[in-house]
């Protein structure tokens, strides 16, 4: 599968209200091509509520239910039950939620839906901040990152949401990044064919939130993978497989680029380098990434 083989159908229409360079729209376009027409989206409070454009217009060509911030998992369960009663098992019910709505306020409803075995796909597009409200820290924000609520840089490390979700023993858990659309497309296609709860988390580098120029979104995602900050994997029936460069990193066949290469390009980390280099925090960040890969090797090697 190469990019030119992706379906020509578009379900995210032109004229959305997204920022220039928005990674969520890149992800949505790919995800919706993979899902196809028979899809119902559930969207909690997040940037996508803006991307939809405003009433009575919409930039979506699939049915979409907006729901309160913390309610997506439960609303999806309700939709799936209703469709089951109608005898419809050919419609994908998909939550499309940000990291705030997933890691923080929405974790309970998501966990409940996983535990109940709801037949749906939960996609978290992770831009590592509350971006719609104007760049505040979330449970997914990296250590050291500036946000409007971590003015001197975040003092804590993000949750390992992948591990939290894997602990639910649902049939399919995957990570992806908008910079690798074929990989994302294939993962959504695969998830579609599996019954039960599926979770896909997509890294979506946000130009205004991460403070980088709007023409470098794809590059920022690639660097996150090449530095090992963002691993690409699939966890299927409790079997872990790393994908693409992440696989090469896991197998020791690719030397991760220095984390600094990713950090330096983002204004949100500029205080780690200027006016003088903050060796301690940079080391801590690097160690966090090293430890993550070490854990992967111990657990899945």
């Amino acid at each position: 599968m190469s990019l030119k083989d992706l379906p020509k159908d578009e379900y995210l229409l032109p004229g959305s209200a997204a920022c220039p360079g928005c990674p969520a729209t890149i992800g949505l376009r790919t995800v919706l091509k993979a899902l196809g027409k028979k899809t119902i989206l559930v969207v909690p409070a997040c940037c996508t509520a803006v991307i939809e454009s405003w009433y009575p217009n919409s930039s979506f060509n699939v049915p979409l239910l907006n729901i309160a911030f913390e309610a997506s998992g439960a609303a999806a369960s309700g939709i799936v039950s209703a469709l089951k009663q109608k005898g419809r098992d050919d419609i994908n019910v998909v939550v499309w939620a940000g990291d705030g709505g997933t890691y923080d306020i929405g974790i309970q409803a998501m966990s409940g839906a996983f535990e109940r075995g709801t037949d749906f796909i939960y996609i978290c597009y992770n831009n590592q901040i509350y971006s719609n409200t104007g760049i505040q820290r979330s449970g997914a924000t990296p250590y050291g990152a500036w946000t409007t609520t971590t003015v001197g840089g975040k003092g804590e490390f993000p949750k390992d949401m992948g591990a939290i979700v894997r602990a639910h023993r649902i049939p399919y858990v995957a990570t992806a990044c908008i910079s690798y659309p074929e990989d994302l497309y294939n993962k959504v296609r695969k998830a579609k064919e599996i019954r039960g709860p599926k979770y896909i988390e997509v890294l979506t580098p946000c130009p205004p939130g991460w403070r980088f120029p709007m023409d470098r979104t794809v590059e920022m995602g690639r660097l996150a993978v090449e530095t090992g900050v963002w691993p690409l994997y699939e966890y299927e029936n409790e079997e872990m497989t790393f994908n693409g460069i992440s696989r090469a990193i896991f197998e020791g066949k690719y030397k991760r680029k220095p984390v600094e290469d990713w950090l330096k390009l983002q204004g949100r980390f500029s205080h780690l380098f200027k006016p003088k280099r903050d060796e301690e925090r940079i080391k801590r960040f690097e160690k966090f990434v090293d430890d993550m890969w070490e854990r992967f090797r111990k657990e899945f090697g």
Partner: peptide
């Protein structure tokens, strides 16, 4: 279909989802 949810907030959210799908 009887959904045993994990909170009342989710009970109402699930009803909203189901009702929006025509149930």
């Amino acid at each position: 279909d009887y959904i045993c949810v994990e909170s009342e907030h989710s009970a109402m959210s699930a009803c909203i989802g189901a009702s929006a799908a025509g149930a």
